[in-house]
């Protein structure tokens, strides 16, 4: 087994304190938000690993750490065996930076409105002084646009076309891994299908590995080989796609599946889940999910569950079996 990305004990803490003067006057301590807490997972080459979770689950933070936009507060992310935040060799860091690219959520904000599409697409290469002759045109055709579009500006394109341009930019430096942060959540359904199909095709053609971040279970189910479920910065369950959807072991995963609207559930009367996601600055003790968990015991409030391996599922729950 060759894991391309290896995440170990990853933790990221943000300082969300008020400014110094306010703290002194209001006699408040510094406040910290633990966005990611002790997360382990591996992504194997040429697979799609999805991270799903609701807001505050830390999924986007993990994505940003993987591409090097944020540094971890603890733990490590190794890509091809190299830890971006601790690697002293600049050449190696640069190689990883061209091997790992990202597709962002908002196609309207992720393209510089003052740049021509050609310059946007080749930036990852031109910045390193690489040869960009005809590159933008080739990539545009690869993502289903026309070579003539290279000289246009982003505002001349629709949301779906912009996301194609983002994909073209991500492909420019011949990456091995693409981190996709909610790549279709800003798109309409019919356009989402186009973009998801394109991403699947490119993966097969180019042998890419995706780290796919989404809150949308149907999209994740469609795209992913292996899925990690996050709750309040913690990985609560991880399993191959079919296993996860047929036999969810963590009560939170189950709750998420029950709550998601389904196209075949006409007039479904469900007992909606109880409670809301707690404040990440003061997370609950023990298992973060215990206040909302229907089967929680007294132990769950006291002790944070370890990740256990059951079959091909990894789950962090005292009661899972």
């Amino acid at each position: 087994m060759s894991s391309l990305i290896s995440v170990r004990g990853l933790t990221r803490i943000f300082d969300v304190s008020k400014p110094w003067l306010n703290r002194v006057l209001e006699r408040r301590p510094k406040a910290y938000l633990t966005a990611v807490s002790d997360v382990d997972f591996d992504v194997e080459e040429k697979t799609v690993y999805a991270l799903v979770g609701e807001s505050g689950s830390g999924k986007s933070t993990i994505g940003k750490i993987v591409v090097g936009l944020l540094s971890p507060s603890g733990g490590s992310v190794e890509i091809e065996g190299i830890d971006l935040s601790h690697e002293p060799d600049a050449a190696k860091v640069d190689r990883i930076r061209s091997d790992v690219q990202m597709i962002f959520q908002d196609p309207y904000a992720s393209l510089n409105p003052r740049w021509r599409v050609r310059d946007i697409i080749v930036e990852p290469v031109s910045h390193r002084g690489g040869d960009t002759e005809g590159l933008a045109e080739k990539l545009l055709e690869q993502v289903g646009l026309s070579a003539h579009d290279a000289s246009k500006f982003p505002h001349e394109f629709s949301g779906g076309q912009r996301q194609r341009i983002c994909i073209a930019r991500a492909l420019a430096s011949n990456p091995r891994v693409i981190v996709c942060d909610e790549p279709t959540s800003a798109l309409d359904v019919s356009v989402q299908a186009q973009v998801l199909n394109l991403m699947s095709d490119l993966r097969e053609e180019l042998g890419l590995t995706y780290l796919f971040i989404s809150h949308d279970l149907t999209v994740v189910q469609h795209m992913a080989d292996r899925i990690g479920v996050l709750y309040l910065g913690r990985l609560v369950e991880e399993a191959p796609r079919d296993r996860l959807f047929t036999e969810p072991k963590h009560p939170y995963t189950e709750m998420l599946f029950d709550a998601a609207p389904r196209m075949d559930a006409f007039g479904r009367e469900v007992n909606p889940p109880q409670g809301e996601i707690p404040d990440a600055i003061n997370p609950p003790s023990g298992c973060a999910f215990h206040p909302r968990c229907p089967i929680a015991t007294e132990r769950c409030a006291r002790e944070r569950p370890e990740m256990r391996t059951i079959g091909d599922t990894r789950v962090a729950c005292h009661l899972a079996e």
Partner: peptide
């Protein structure tokens, strides 16, 4: 804070 600036940072600018 817009994503195109993040994209540029990621490239290593």
């Amino acid at each position: 804070n817009k994503e195109y600036v993040q994209a540029a940072r990621m490239i290593g600018r």
